[in-house]
Design a protein around this nucleic acid. Sequence first.
DNA 1: TTCATAAATCGAAATATCTCGATATTTAGT
DNA 2: ACTAAATATCGAGATATTTCGATTTATGAA
Lengths: 102, 102
Amino acid sequence: MNLEKSIAALNNPVRRRILEWLKDRTNFPPALPEHADLDGVCVAYIQEKAKLSQSTISNYMGLLKQAGFVVAERHGQWTFYRRDEENIRAFLAAVQNELLKP
Amino acid sequence: MNLEKSIAALNNPVRRRILEWLKDRTNFPPALPEHADLDGVCVAYIQEKAKLSQSTISNYMGLLKQAGFVVAERHGQWTFYRRDEENIRAFLAAVQNELLKP
DNA sequence: TTCATAAATCGAAATATCTCGATATTTAGT
DNA sequence: ACTAAATATCGAGATATTTCGATTTATGAA
């Protein structure tokens, strides 16, 4: 957990929105049958919803991953991203700890 | 409470450190006798501790104020800044609400 | 092995942030 | 009114972020 990187990753409205979208898989088109068991979302679906270029979204997902907000799982040619709930909670605890008086 | 501005204000290590310093008045030199009743800290004291220029710190305190993390109180030629604990808690609640799953 | 598709990386232009010194503003004291 | 001190604002150069299209890499299928 790196506060610096995490706050920087959150300092962008589209990245924050992606994190919200990822709370619920039904925010995206249904997965292909062969991916039915995964609960992540591929880059193309996120790109479509965010209406930004493929390279931008790939970059964004990399930042969110480095910040610990999402984990990536490769399956064939697809990379599936999903939230890392535990790390998200750890981040919130860290910000609280930094901001709140003892 | 403006999440956008608040996160942007936090996205800087010096500004975060200032917020931490302000948790405890004794992190700064003692106040002048005529300011003994105020629990804020003047810009010059913060500048001295942060080792950045006066204009930079004035700017930073403006950002922290706009973000709602501190309040400013003018007394004569001095501006005293202190944390706005209630707003800080409101910010933390808002980030939690945005980040945490329903 | 060749082709097509998904994603990652690269290079660059536009914009934003950081930080400074210089200047302006506000207020207190003479 | 004049001066001095504290803070705020301005203008600018350096650096970082945003976002793109083009290219590269990885994988699966013909």
